[in-house]
């Protein structure tokens, strides 16, 4: 139908082992004229370059999002701890140590971070489901575009926990260094 005659675009060659593949590629390329043999793995790397670029782009966007979230979290923790300045001043005046106060604030920050990140996992899972539904319909494919794995959940929770603890510690340290009477506004 195409009028191509005795022609093909490519051959697929099966080999018994990886070593045999290397040997076959070398021998075919040594004797080939007008065509070239490639390992399937090399072809896969070459054809998946587009996905690799998209993946790197997503990682970069993720990094920017993490920076924005870290600042947001720090700001919120600062406000939250600031709201408790009178409580902290009272605790200091009745003899609570700085360590105890910082510890309690950090614990609270950690709890908020864990609860927030768990809520975020639910939001992320829902978003992932919607993304898959949308793009599977757009491109008419069963391929999954977004996958929430255990590793990703673990990374998100760990990151939120670390950021929450650091933000809480910074805000609490700032508060305990202020004299209690100044915290009362006197």
């Amino acid at each position: 139908m195409l009028g191509y005659g005795d022609r093909v675009d490519r051959f697929a060659v099966g080999t018994p082992s990886s070593g045999a593949t290397t040997d076959a590629v070398a021998r075919i390329n040594a004797s080939a004229f007008g065509f070239q043999a490639h390992r399937s793995a090399d072809v896969a790397v070459e054809t998946s370059k587009t996905f690799a670029v998209v993946s790197r782009f997503h990682r970069a966007i993720g990094t920017i999002t993490i920076v924005a979230s870290a600042i947001f979290l720090l700001c919120i923790m600062l406000l939250k701890v600031d709201e408790r300045r009178r409580d902290v001043a009272a605790l200091r005046l009745i003899g609570c140590s700085e360590r105890t106060i910082v510890g309690s604030v950090v614990l609270e920050a950690a709890a908020i971070a864990v609860l927030g990140s768990l809520f975020g996992v639910v939001v992320g899972g829902t978003a992932s489901f919607l993304v898959n539904r949308h793009y599977q319909a757009v491109y008419r494919t069963p391929l999954r575009f977004s996958i929430v794995t255990g590793d990703i959940v673990l990374l998100a929770v760990a990151l939120a926990l670390v950021l929450g603890i650091v933000a809480g510690w910074l805000a609490a340290r700032r508060l305990v260094r202020t004299p209690p009477l100044a915290l009362f506004g006197r």
């Binding site: 999002t65 924005a68 600042i71 700001c75 600062l78 406000l79 600031d82 700032r174």
Partner: peptide
């Protein structure tokens, strides 16, 4: 009056604005 808070807010908004 609340310098640290203002600076953090500006930084946060700046990153959002950049995005």
């Amino acid at each position: 009056r609340h310098r640290t808070r203002t600076v953090l807010a500006i930084l946060g908004v700046a990153v959002s604005a950049a995005m």
